[in-house]
Design a protein around this nucleic acid. Structure first.
Length: 589
DNA sequence: GCCGTTTTCGGCCCGACTGTTTTCAGTCG
């Protein structure tokens, strides 16, 4: 799937055009095209094969040609020419916060700066403040920006950011002065990594709330402390912003600060079409019934706020149903909302059990009894025990004898329980040749068979895909666990053709896991959506090794929701009996 | 460069903040 590559190339073209001072709308056309391609749920190669590239939103004849050219030759001539004429340092400088195209061009042209090292030196030598409209502050900001660039670039995993944000919200919510409070930003949209934490409140005493925020135990450094906004760096080195807004604007502000930017742009366009204006302060209609933006020179009529208190209200006056935050990526949710076909996203209350849990038989910490007690306490009706199979020595993989013993123990525990049961499973290794690390005699005795890759990650794409497809063709293989093996920020996904895997899953009746561990979130949301569209069932499992990790379910759920999944798409919204019967259909055919 | 129950030409999202300037350009989200 070359969607991401092509999106990156179009973004690069946009950057270069902007540096050259081209028409901003042309620049935006490339950016929007990039965004749309990246958000596509199918491989752009497939769209090209059907000769339907120009039916994609934001893609016309010209861009369709450039995509086709890239798919054919691996290059875009136009971009090659642009690159030849554009000094590399200009693109490098754009990555520095605070430097945009205008400044980058000036620094290069007027100070002959050819690298980020030279830029740093120029700032340290105070060469920059010799230029008109640049002063000491400019140099200071450039140095800060450079430092940020070298240090940061890494976004924070949601598994770190969400507990921190919830802790801050909890502390602020206790204040008498805080009325409404919510997490906003990419965290509210459940992105797998986030840039900074955004929190929104209404309050009768904004300064006091902001002061409290900037002096929290979690605050390591104060970046700003004004009358409507406070900003800190936490001890985890994550930036957190607090904004205080008016009660009457809370909904529109929450919508605005939740984003995504692309979603917000679409909403504003709809507002304009309907003769309204949307901003973080509300939805406004021009007074006097004027339905068009006033021409330059004419005086604007008085504007009246017609919504803003709640997000629901904002969507309603725009003629849309409420769109859940996880869908707000401009990846089709606006069209679905207009057509009345938004999915009823799966919710936590729909989840009846956990499908991925390790006990102390392998590398987990808890006993089977403890797992059962925790699962029952969470209100689940089952947990699938998925300890490792024999080959995975490093994780205490179970020998056939140990597995038989475990199955016996599960049965006797179940005999003592009411309204809850442990399901007999295993996370069986997929061996390098695609066979399973367990005898048929044992596979037969399991309720649900998870299969997973834990060895030989570095196979080439073709071989890896074949390996996994062969494993899925095994009639006892029920759920493919963490299909790409990625560990966010630590290990890349292994090279595998996910489209092919999804097709094979659909064909063989094998489900695919969303591994809910926040370091994995694998499948990711986009692949999830593609899998569900192909009719593949999705199981959400926490990959629990210590009991507190059973709470990771929310991350898997967030990913599922970002992937447009409903309860019907998810295995563990079924009862244990339905689940097992559904999966074992494969054995009978 | 894209797009059209207003348009095949003339539009294309909104506001705040910053740093530099005395009215605004550039950048950001």
């Amino acid at each position: 799937m070359k969607n991401r590559e092509i999106a990156a190339l179009f973004d690069e073209i946009a950057d270069i055009l902007e540096l050259r001072g081209e028409n901003v709308f042309r620049v935006n056309a490339y950016r929007r095209a990039a965004q749309n391609i990246e958000g596509l749920t199918r491989a752009i190669e497939d769209v090209a094969d059907e000769d339907r590239l120009d039916e994609l939103p934001g893609i016309g004849k010209d861009l369709a040609g450039k995509i086709a050219e890239y798919l054919e030759s691996g290059e875009i001539d136009y971009l090659n020419d642009l690159r030849k004429e554009t000094p590399r340092v200009l693109l490098d400088m754009l990555r520095i916060p605070g430097i945009g195209p205008k400044t980058a061009v000036r620094l290069h042209a007027e100070l002959a700066i050819d690298s980020l090292e030279e830029l740093k030196q120029a700032a340290l030598d105070h060469q920059i403040q010799k230029l008109p409209k640049m002063k000491a502050k400019t140099e200071e900001n450039i140095l800060k920006g450079l430092e940020f660039l070298s240090r940061a670039s890494a976004r924070t995993p949601i598994g770190v950011a969400l507990p921190l944000a919830q802790r801050i919200v909890g502390a602020l919510a206790q204040l008498g002065e805080v009325d409404r409070i919510s997490i906003a930003g990419s965290l509210r949209r459940f992105r797998e990594t986030i840039g900074d934490i955004d929190i929104l409140v209404t309050s009768s005493a904004p300064e006091r709330v902001i002061r409290h925020f900037t002096h929290l135990d979690d605050a390591a450094r104060i970046l700003a402390e004004g009358s409507t906004k406070g900003s800190i760096v936490t001890r985890e080195k994550i930036q957190a912003d607090l904004r205080v807004v008016e009660e009457a604007s809370y909904g529109s502000a929450l919508n605005y600060f939740t984003g995504s930017k692309e979603h917000n742009i679409r909403l504003r366009e709809i507002a304009i079409q309907e003769g309204m204006k949307l901003s973080e302060y509300g939805v406004f209609r021009a007074g006097g019934g004027a339905r068009k933006k006033p021409r330059a020179g004419k005086k604007a009529p008085k504007e009246v706020r017609i919504a803003g208190r709640t997000e629901e209200e904002v969507y309603r006056v725009l003629g849309l149903p409420y769109i859940p935050p996880e869908l707000r990526e401009d990846s089709g949710e606006i069209e679905a909302a207009l057509a009345g076909t938004l999915p009823a996203l799966v919710e936590l209350k729909d989840i009846r059990g956990d499908l991925h849990c390790h006990s102390n038989f392998s590398d987990g910490a808890a006993t089977l009894k403890e797992i059962a007690a925790s699962g029952k306490k969470k209100g689940y009706s089952y947990i699938l025990i998925t300890d490792h199979s024999q080959s995975l020595h490093i994780a205490g993989g179970l020998s056939p004898e140990r597995l038989r013993k475990q199955l016996g123990e599960i049965d006797s525990i179940n005999a003592t329980l009411r309204g809850f049961k442990l399901l007999r499973g295993s996370e069986v290794d997929i061996l390098p040749d695609g066979s399973l690390d367990m005898s048929e005699e044992l596979l037969k005795r399991l309720d649900v068979v998870y299969i997973a890759i834990h060895s030989k990650f570095k196979m080439d794409r073709g071989a890896m895909t074949k390996r996994v497809v062969r494993a899925m063709e095994n009639p006892y293989a029920n759920v493919l666990a963490h299909p790409t093996g990625r560990l966010l920020g630590m290990r890349d996904a292994f090279d595998i053709d996910m489209q092919e895997v999804i097709r094979a899953a659909a064909r063989t009746g094998t489900a695919i896991e969303i591994n809910a561990h926040p370091a994995r979130l694998d499948l990711d949301a986009a692949a999830c959506r593609a899998a569900a569209a192909a009719g593949v069932m999705i199981g959400i499992g926490t990959d629990t090794h210590v009991l507190s990790e059973l709470d990771y379910m929310i991350y898997g759920l967030g990913t599922a929701r970002r992937g447009w999944l409903t309860a019907a798409n998810i295995l563990n919204t079924r009862t244990a009996r339905q689940l097992v019967s559904l999966l074992q259909r494969k054995r009978r055919t």
